[in-house]
Simulated scan of single mutants.
Amino acid sequence: MRNVAKPVALLAALATPLAWGFDDGSEPVVPPFSGGIELGAFMATGNTETTHIKGKIDTQHLIGNWQNQYLFETLYSEDGDERSAERYYGLVQGNYPGAGKHYFFGMASGEVDKFSGYDYIATGAVGYGQRIIDQDNMTLVSEIGPGYSYKKIDLNEDPDGEDESSWITRVKLEYWWQFSSTAEFRQLLASDIAFDGANISRSETSVSAALIGNLAMKLSYNVKYNSDPVGDLKSTDTELGATLLYSF
């Protein structure tokens, strides 16, 4: 696993300029963000002690010809005194040109999942995207490009395991449909296909409906698939959740 930092640093360097816009070529210009904040929590006391907290921040903004995304999400669950889930995921991506039907992208992401068999996963990729459908109430976007992924093994889960580093092909498909004035449907599919090691794929299916003002209720079903799980862990993790969504 020598020289792992070099490919990751190279891809991060390629992705970083795509995440910022410049007014005169010297100073970054950061206009007001748009996006949404999600929060869901469930806590029970008495005979059953249960805590479940889910949060997500997903923001976008346009700067000249650049379209940028900043995403952070977290999940924590506890049954009694035993932790059952703890995950943190962050992503930054920039697209150029942001408003074009065809564009180039650069992205970098990191994940810490205490129950995945890895201490962390770091990924970077660059590539090509296309807006296959681009209407006021419906969009369909596809992306594909080369990248690099490094997975730090959790030795508590697999004492004899080895860290994984591999070039990957990143593929993403995202569909959005506003099927009424107050409700919308979204489907996200993303996969990091490794040349050597585990393939990691994610899916999020969600429906949201407006409650009052900028506040909405969101129901989502998430699937995470690992083609070669660590140790005796299962390949597929699923999550069904309900959150409040505030858009700004």
Rank of each mutant, 00 (worst) to 15 (best):
V8F: 15
G36S: 11
T182M: 05
Q130F: 14
H61V: 03
Y118K: 10
M138N: 03
T238H: 06
T169L: 15
T74S: 14
G80P: 07
Q178N: 09
G145T: 03
I212V: 13
F33Q: 15
Q67P: 00
M138E: 10
L71R: 02
T205R: 00
L71G: 01
G64T: 00
D154C: 09
T238Q: 11
G129Y: 02
G129S: 03
I153D: 09
D24T: 09
D228P: 07
P229E: 13
I200C: 04
E82D: 14
G231P: 07
S116P: 07
A9M: 13
V112T: 12
I57A: 14
D113Y: 03
A242N: 06
S203V: 10
G90Y: 04
F22R: 04
D232Q: 14
L91Q: 07
A198T: 15
L245T: 08
P17C: 08
K101A: 11
K224L: 08
S26Q: 14
G147E: 04
D228F: 05
N214I: 02
A15V: 05
E143A: 00
R202M: 05
A108L: 04
G36F: 05
D237H: 11
N222M: 02
Y148R: 05
A5S: 13
M43C: 10
E111W: 06
G98V: 01
E157K: 14
E78L: 11
F72K: 00
L14R: 06
Y148V: 07
E73C: 00
D237M: 11
Y225F: 11
A41Y: 08
R131P: 01
L75C: 01
G197W: 01
G21V: 00
V126S: 02
Q69K: 06
G64K: 02
L244V: 13
H61R: 15
A183I: 07
S180I: 00
D232H: 12
S206T: 00
V223Y: 03
L245V: 09
L245K: 13
G40A: 08
L233T: 10
D113S: 06
W177P: 01
G145K: 01
Q178A: 08
A15L: 02
A44V: 14
T182R: 10
S142V: 15
S206F: 02
T182F: 06
P97M: 04
V230P: 08
L245W: 03
G98F: 00
N95Y: 01
W167L: 10
I121M: 04
V92I: 07
A190S: 15
K218Y: 02
T74D: 09
I193R: 06
V112Y: 14
G80E: 12
D232I: 10
M217D: 05
W20K: 03
R186I: 03
F185Q: 03
Y148F: 15
Y225D: 10
A198V: 11
L244C: 10
A5H: 12
A5F: 12
Y225P: 02
G231A: 15
R87F: 04
P28S: 05
Q187L: 09
Y128C: 04
G231E: 14
I132C: 01
T45F: 13
S206N: 06
K218E: 08
T59P: 03
N156R: 15
N3F: 08
I144Q: 03
T123Q: 11
E143S: 03
L189K: 08
G90P: 00
I200L: 15
